[in-house]
Amino acid sequence: MSVTEELPTAGAADGGEVRWERVCLHSDLLPERGAAALLGETQVALFRLADGEVVATQQLDPFSGANVMSRGIVGTRAGVPTVAAPVYKQVYSLETGECLETAGYSPRPGQEPRLVTYPVEVRDGVVHVAVP
């Protein structure tokens, strides 16, 4: 259901070639919960924070290998918005994707203990995500 369209590249993390995709309406997202989105072959987790801001990370959980990050509990640690992985409860910063707490586990082989984040823009009530 995703639609590709031209949008300015502002907000792209690495300045490389990105594709902005219209994903859903802002009102499709529940406050302080996540939702998964399928962008081509890439699975992305969207989180609508308490103040209405939307952030996006990879949907793949580096510690379980399952595509479930959107189903974690959204909260804060020292004022920083976070999500806790639903399988083994690692806690990640939603600002940087950094893993704040590994809960005693190691990532799956080939995985890093962090989440890739994607730029998000909400324009006219529509959520857009930039994917490489």
Binding site: E32, A50, G72, I73, V74, G75, T76, R77, A78, G79, V80, P81, T82, A84, K89, V91
Partner: peptide, 23 residues
């Protein structure tokens, strides 16, 4: 009130909970 990382602005609000207290 939230515990704030070193150097960050103090936050007056208690934050929005976490995977411990929310459940």
């Amino acid at each position: 009130a939230a515990v704030v990382a070193d150097g960050a602005e103090p936050v007056a609000s208690p934050g929005r909970g976490c995977d411990i207290c929310k459940p």
